[in-house]
Write a protein that binds this DNA or RNA. Structure first.
Lengths: 242, 242
DNA sequence: AACTATTGTATCATTATGTTACAATAATAA
DNA sequence: TTATTATTGTAACATAATGATACAATAGTT
C-alpha cells in the first residue's frame, strides 16, 4: 500500500467513479407520529452525514441513488425522487473527511478523492419505517433514524439539503400522492392524516381531510381494525394505483 | 499543436472545467402568441442543440448556468431555474460532436473532452423576447429562436430536456408567479392571458383569469394603452413584487 | 348497562371558480 | 358627427371546492 493513497481499502478511492459528482439521499421514515431521517455517523468523530455515494462511470445517475438508498435500508423497491443539485463552491468543506481520515490514523493527502470539490445531486426517499434495516457503510460505522425536528449537526451543507428535501416533499405531497410510501400497506385514516399533518407541519380538519382523500379514488377499505382504544374501530385502507 | 488534442482552440478542451458534468439551458421567450426556444446550430452540419456549457473548477453551478444563458442572450438579469439532472448512460451519444469535428476537418480523438459521457444539469430561463440578442458561441455558429411547437430534431436527449423543462414551467407557473419574466415591463391583461394559455396549452375564461390575477395583488395599472384596434383601449399593467 | 373516546358522515357556511351578460369605449366607416 | 364594431372591464349568478359544526355509531372500559 503506497503512502500516496493511504488506507483506501474499504472506502472509495475514486477508481471507476465520476469525479467531483456525488449523490446524497434524504431518506424519510414515519414513526410515532414523527418524521425520521436516516443519518450516518463515524463513531470516532461526532460527525453526522446523509447517506451518500458516487456514480460509477458505467452507471445511471438514478441507479447510483437507488444503490445508495438500497444499501442503507435493505429495501429493493424504493420511492426516490431527485429534488435539487447542490453545486456552490461554498459547500466544499473537506474538513469532515480530513478529520475522519486523521481519526482513522491516516495522513490526509491534499489531493485525496474525498477531499475534492463535489457537486451533489439530492434525492429524497420515502420508505416504510417498519421495513427498514439501517445499515452502515464502510466509511460511517453507524446508521440510524433521527427525528427530523431534532437532527444533530450535520457536515457541510447537509442540513440545508434536508431542509430543501422537506420543502420539495411538501410541494409534491398533494400533486403526486406520494405520502403512501411512508406508511405500511394497511393504515387507518387517522394514520394518514397524522402523516400529512407531520409533513406539512400543521393540523388539518378531520372531516375535510377524509372527504378529500376518499374523493381521490385511490383508497380501498380492506377491513375494520378491531384493536386499540376504548372507542369505535376505524377502517383499514390500502393504496391502489387506479 | 499536438495530434492528441486536435484543433481545440476556439472550443473547450476541458482545461479548468469539471469533467463529465455540463449545464444545458432551455431559454424560453414569448412572441406572436408563441413560446420560443433558443437553439444553437453548427451550420456545416444540420445538428441543433440547446445552449450549454461546462462548469469551471472554481465556479458555482448556478453561475455556470447564468454564464451560459447570459452569453447567448446578451442579458444580465435572467430568471433561471434548475429543473432536472439528466444522468442516464443512454444519453451518451458522442456522434453529434464527432460529426462536428469531422466537418471541421479534425480527426475525432476517442478520448476527446467533448466525446466523454456527460451528466447535465437542466436549467430553464424565462426572458423578455424583445430584449434578447441571440449570440452564437465558438462551437455553434448559429443561435436563433424556434417555435416550441415546431422544433427541429435536436441532438442527444435535448428534445426530452425541452419537454421536461416545459413540464416544470407549467407546474411552477401558478405557484411561483414566474410568467411575468416572459413579458415586457408593461403588458395588457390580454397579453398575460395569452401567455398563460400558450404555456398551459389550453384556453382560459377571460373574466375568471382577470379576477384571479387582480386578486393576487401583484399587478399595478400604470396607464391606458391608446393604440391598436378599433375597440376599447386596455389598461397596461406592471408586475410588482409586493 | 352506563360511560368514554374516537370514528364516520351529514349538514351548513364560506370561499373559490366557472359562466353568462352587458355597459364602456377607441378606432373605423357612413 | 354619428352609427358601427370589436374588445375590454366587471357585475351577476351558478356551480364546485373547502372550512366548520354537529351528531349518531361503536369498541372497549367501568
Amino acid at each position: 500500500m503506497s503512502k500516496q493513497q493511504p488506507s483506501t481499502e474499504g472506502h472509495p478511492a475514486g477508481e471507476g467513479f465520476i469525479p467531483h459528482l456525488a449523490v446524497d439521499a434524504v431518506i424519510f421514515g414515519f414513526h410515532d407520529k414523527q418524521l425520521k431521517v436516516l443519518l450516518m455517523q463515524y463513531s470516532r468523530t461526532h460527525l453526522y452525514a446523509l447517506p451518500g455515494g458516487f456514480i460509477r462511470q458505467n452507471e445511471n445517475l438514478d441507479a447510483a441513488a437507488k444503490r445508495v438508498a438500497s444499501e442503507r435500508t435493505g429495501l429493493t423497491d424504493i420511492f426516490l425522487e431527485q429534488f435539487h443539485v447542490f453545486g456552490d463552491l461554498a459547500r466544499h468543506d473537506p474538513s469532515p473527511f480530513a478529520s475522519f481520515m486523521t481519526a482513522n490514523g491516516d495522513e490526509p493527502d491534499a489531493g485525496h478523492w474525498l477531499l475534492q470539490r463535489f457537486i451533489t445531486v439530492g434525492y429524497f426517499a420515502l420508505v416504510d419505517f417498519t421495513q427498514v434495516t439501517p445499515t452502515p457503510d464502510k466509511i460511517f460505522d453507524s446508521c440510524d433514524w433521527y427525528d427530523l425536528n431534532a437532527l444533530p449537526p450535520l457536515i457541510q451543507d447537509h442540513t440545508a439539503i434536508v431542509n430543501k428535501a422537506l420543502q420539495s416533499l411538501r410541494i409534491m405531497l398533494d400533486d403526486k400522492l406520494i405520502g403512501f410510501n411512508l406508511l405500511p400497506v394497511d393504515f387507518t385514516m387517522g394514520d394518514l392524516q397524522s402523516l400529512y399533518e407531520t409533513i406539512l407541519g400543521k393540523s388539518l380538519l378531520r372531516p375535510a381531510f377524509q372527504r378529500k382523500m376518499l374523493s381521490l379514488g385511490i383508497l380501498v377499505r380492506v377491513a375494520k381494525k378491531y384493536s386499540g382504544g376504548a372507542h369505535k374501530a376505524p377502517y383499514l385502507y390500502r393504496f391502489v394505483s387506479k
